[in-house]
């Protein structure tokens, strides 16, 4: 879904680097593939570094090509984090898209650093005990010129952000929440709906940070005040992965949402 939206947003002059994940599989079998873009498929932890070499090669060949790294949350938060951090710190000139489905969905949905508290996965059958890793904030601490979040629930916002990212030079980070019906346990027809619920309940903030200036996207503006947020339960109850959630876990998740927004408010003030 996100891949198609990117196609609409970025136009033709794009080269992809796809690290191990679902997107390595949905291309289909060689020697054919189902992508309209040239793609370098590469090992899990190598995407940002390969992109660092690729955009420089295009520059040396005087070609105006937007290099995009396509990675899952496992490849971003866990095994590829050193490579991501290095490329962000060097302010390498490419767009990094993290397709965040909050687990290792390609290998069966095992927990990752990006899995939220309380979620049941094959490797956390009792529910994950820790909170989701704050990738966007971590990226901001790398002084990158552009960092944003989006959700497949709001494709226009997502495409706007990609278009804006394309005009900026340097390291651009976009994290897209992509609800996975098989890992999150809901009916696949509700994918877009769940993506919207995540935003409406303020679990997933839609933000855009350009050169350190934090901007809350329209769809998330109601989250700035606690009273106007939709109850978190509306997002959690449609998913089977939260079936083990007890009252304490629920409170934990609520305070996680509060914490996130407090932090955003603080960033907006500075």
């Amino acid at each position: 879904m996100t891949m198609r939206m990117m196609g609409m947003a970025l136009g033709n002059n794009v080269a992809l680097i796809v690290v191990a994940g679902c997107s390595s599989v949905i291309q289909g079998m060689g020697p054919k593939n189902s992508y309209g873009y040239p793609a370098l498929n590469i090992a899990f932890a190598a995407g940002p570094a390969a992109a660092s070499g690729m955009w420089r090669a295009f520059k040396q060949r005087n070609k105006d090509v937007t290099v995009v790294v396509w990675a899952g949350d496992g490849g971003t938060a866990d095994i590829g984090f050193a490579s991501l951090s290095g490329a962000a710190e060097r302010n390498e000139n490419f767009i990094y898209v993290c397709v965040d489905n909050e687990a290792y969905m390609n290998s069966g949905g095992q927990r990752s650093g990006s899995t939220p508290h309380g979620a049941v996965t094959p490797t956390t059958p009792e529910g994950k005990k820790e909170n989701k890793k704050e990738l966007l904030f971590l990226m901001l601490d790398h002084h990158v010129p552009y960092a944003a979040t989006a959700s497949v629930g709001y494709p226009h916002d997502l495409m706007d952000k990609l278009r804006r990212a394309k005009t900026i030079e340097g390291f651009r980070y976009l994290q897209v929440l992509t609800p996975d019906p098989y890992g999150w346990l809901f009916d696949p027809s509700r994918t877009a709906e769940v993506g919207k619920l995540a935003v409406q309940t303020c679990y997933w903030p839609l933000l855009e940070v350009v050169n350190g200036r934090v901007q809350v996207s329209n769809e998330s503006l109601h989250c700035l005040r606690k009273e106007t947020r939709r109850p978190l339960r509306d997002f959690l109850s449609v998913q089977g992965r939260y079936k083990r959630l007890n009252d304490q876990d629920y409170k934990e998740l609520e305070s996680y949402v509060d914490y996130t927004w407090d932090r955003i408010l603080k960033l907006m003030r500075t």
Binding site: Q27, G28, M29, G30, P31, K32, N33, S34, Y35, G36
Partner: peptide, 12 residues
Amino acid sequence: FPVSTPAEGAGG
């Protein structure tokens, strides 16, 4: 070489 080209329905 392990190279592939775009084709409709390559995913099956």
